[in-house]
Design a binder for these strands. Structure first.
Lengths: 223, 223
DNA sequence: CCAATTCTATAGCGGGCGCTACGCAAAGTG
DNA sequence: CACTTTGCGTAGCGCCCGCTATAGAATTGG
């Protein structure tokens, strides 16, 4: 039935236009990117935009969804492929340093920065919920790691997850403020030094200092 | 000469109005706070605002300056009063957790969040420069601490300063995303665990896991 | 008192915002 | 071909933006 459309075919590629809208929103944020900016970036006129994507807010939601599945997918890959919580979050932070400073697209993270100072509550809330969902997944992974014995029993999974989230968000803003890839990678390495040492109990009452595994990463280097 | 004005006296308190403008900009950011929002918050009409403060941008600059000397002064106090680099930056992060979640004013840090996604380049740049100046002062303090022997000789002052800045900026956004004071204090404590341990060399050739001093803070707790 | 000075209030300027009505262009269907 | 369906382009809607012209109100100096 939908093998072929009835009327005049669309004169632009919808996915390409979506990608160009992504770049615009990524660079300037939701509110600051006007529909006029979007039509210019996408190479189409306003009625075409509205016909293909609904209104500005709906377009942004589609942009965010596509972003999460492409540029923002490194976190999910790290979680899927790394066996330990430390390995997953360390890789997430290190890859974020690369993505946030990749010269082929705007700096930082769209989900972190695009709805800051946004006067449309639904948009602000949608991205906030995504961030808090990510935080919850960090926590779940850390808790699972602790229960599996990778991390000391007293580890506060919620606090450690929030710490990683704060570093990630800080790295995004630092990237937008001009930090280099190397500088952000160093930040990621330092952040991983805050993780509980294998075999070192986290509570002050000092117990069960058994060996555990070795450090996964060398971590502290000069320069 | 200026003991008394010649004409009709101002009918509002300039400092009070400035404070109310600060709250508005702090909550919604530079761009999102309209002049109409400002006049409502300050309780004056537009011509009075322009006569007393110049234009919107000049008012914002005055707001930022006042903010830096009041709500944002905790960093300078920590630097002035704490004898060591670790003490200064640890206190800065801990006090930031309190300020960022103080219920008597908007959450987070105005200098960090108010010019994100701002289409006025001068405003965005002014706050970015302030942040980068703060980062440079972190680095100078850490470098001085390393030269004084507080920290291992190989310590990368720039990277450690940037790490602290990233945590601070991340804490600001987390506060705006709803994190509690207690949660942010835990983030600050964890961040301080990444600092080089006294007596432990920073270079990575994997040795010397000797005891070192006890941790400065217990850090990870349950709940 | 009157004149000069300074602040306040109303009302509105030009312009950009998100969005859309409308008529034409380009395709499929008989 | 005529007819329907759908996308495109122009042009412009109502609204809010930052900002200000103008006139009246409140004060000091003479």
């Amino acid at each position: 039935m939908t093998t072929r459309q009835r009327g005049r075919p669309r004169s632009f590629d919808r996915l390409t236009a979506l990608e160009q809208a992504t770049m615009a929103f990524w660079e300037h944020g939701y509110e600051t990117t006007s529909v006029s900016d979007l039509t210019r970036a996408m190479g189409i006129s306003a009625p075409s935009l509205y016909a293909a994507f609904g209104d500005k807010r709906t377009l942004f939601e589609e942009v965010v969804e596509a972003y999460a599945g492409s540029y923002g997918a490194y976190g999910g890959r790290a979680f899927a492929e790394e066996p330990t919580a430390r390995g997953a979050l360390g890789r997430l932070l290190r890859e974020a340093a690369d993505v946030f400073t990749d010269p082929s697209h705007p700096r930082g993270c769209l989900m972190i920065s695009a709805a800051v100072n946004c006067s449309t509550p639904e948009v602000e809330e949608a991205l906030r919920e995504r961030r808090n969902r990510n935080l919850a997944s960090f926590e779940a992974r850390i808790r699972a790691g602790a229960e599996a014995g990778e991390l000391p029993a007293g580890t506060d999974a919620g606090a450690l997850a929030r710490f990683c989230g704060a570093v990630l968000q800080g790295m995004s803003q630092q990237a937008r403020d001009g930090a280099t890839r190397t500088e952000l990678e160093a930040v990621a390495e330092i952040a991983m030094l805050a993780w509980p040492q294998a075999g070192v109990p986290v509570a002050a009452t000092g117990k069960a200092p058994e060996a555990g595994k070795a450090r996964e990463t060398p971590a502290g280097r000069g320069a």
